[in-house]
Design a binder for these strands. Structure first.
Lengths: 222, 222
DNA sequence: ACTTGAAATGACCACTGGTCAGCTATATAG
DNA sequence: CTATATAGCTGACCAGTGGTCATTTCAAGT
């Protein structure tokens, strides 16, 4: 029987390997939150997870494959939390607020989601990509099912809502990714611009417009 | 009097320098369209524009400063084209379609817009960033002014529409940035997923919902 | 205690963006 | 028409990157 504990020893059983892999992922998540995507280096991650750089590549094909896994875990975490937090007969606005807040509360979900398609997916093997898309489908379906009863929508409408919310979330939170100009002496016109792109109202207002639009279409088109 | 022509000679006058700078930008644009953002290397760009790598840094502070300039030029190009193509009394749908098509027609605008806030802006000096934001404000105002008459909206509504269209465009075209899986043997569930995220209908449908939503709000709130 | 196979290692590779002391083309002064 | 000063240009160089793989090391099975 192999011990579940993996300190510095070699991981021989599948179980031990999974533990080590997860330990690396946890180190990566913390490190990523500290330095962000661009400054994240595999050599540093090795040091921080107490493992040689080469060892990282036994557990992940590429840097991007590691980030893809991190993304998947954060997606599943978010979807679980959001589903649990939803209540029945919720207004569109409350729904949008909850979605926005739960998504932003996760320290890695949005930064990874934003980079998914144009960076991360470009250095991952196709079968791994397919696996990842399937996880995505599963999560969307789960969230849509719960959303259907919460928002009183048909199954098809709920799927459309969830997909669209994802799209809107990526667009609306784009500005949050700008370099922090908080302690810079900015001219007022630029300050106003930044304020006018505040992601929370941007997301919520448009989420409501879209959800209500979808509802309205169902009434006019039988 | 300094000749306007700059072949391989040194650029001494301000005019010649501007020409050389523009020549580098044009080489960069072609090269970028060929290889994309990640594979774009300054050494290669030097070779392709017939200039040493070090020289590039006389004209641009960083790789990202170069991309920021490329982005600005494509933004101005798009906004000019879009304004010219708009006609009065256009429907929301026709407006959305035109916006989508003109934005996608430019080979570099969207790929750069998508990377603006979370990559490009992070390696550019603050004064340069402020300058860039001002160009952005100017362009948004120009497009909004024309959109107000085209869509018969108030000035404030038009600004909101234009800003929101930008957000939606970034989100909706995200999927177009995925690695091309066209000639891969994908399982049908994944194929369906990809099809359901087709950016054109995604953008247009939601653009219409948002524009109509903004219109409706004006009627209920005096 | 010995064998064995696989986990772990880190020097190594080809590359990156960015720098800067030295080179040289050019405009101007004598 | 030449000498000088200026400044545009260069490419070797630097510290770093993601990724590889021959070699080492250690735990399990005999």
């Amino acid at each position: 029987m192999s011990a579940a504990i993996s300190i510095n020893q070699r991981a021989r059983s599948a179980e031990q390997k999974a533990l080590r892999r997860q330990a690396v992922l946890e180190a990566a998540e913390t490190y990523f939150q500290e330095v962000g995507y661009e400054a994240f280096s595999m050599a540093q991650l090795g040091k921080r997870s107490g493992v040689a750089k080469g060892t990282l590549y036994l557990y992940f094909d590429t840097r991007e494959a590691l980030f893809l896994t991190l993304y998947e875990q954060s997606l599943m975490r978010w979807s679980r939390g959001f589903i649990d937090a939803l209540s029945d007969d919720i207004t569109s606005e409350a729904y949008a607020k909850l979605l926005y807040r739960t998504a932003l509360a996760d320290g890695v979900f949005l930064p990874l989601l934003i980079r998914l398609e144009h960076v991360i997916e470009h250095n991952v093997a196709i079968p791994r990509l397919i696996e990842s898309k399937r996880i995505f489908i599963e999560q969307v379906e789960g969230v849509a099912k719960r959303s259907a009863t919460a928002l009183q929508l048909s199954a098809a409408q709920a799927v459309e809502v969830v997909k669209t919310m994802g799209v809107l979330l990526i667009g609306a939170t784009q500005t949050d990714q700008s370099p922090s100009l908080a302690d810079e002496a900015l001219p007022t016109d630029v300050q106003n611009l930044i304020a006018s792109f505040s992601s929370e109202p941007l997301f919520i207002k448009n989420a409501v417009r879209i959800i209500e639009g979808i509802r309205a279409e169902a009434l006019s088109n039988p």
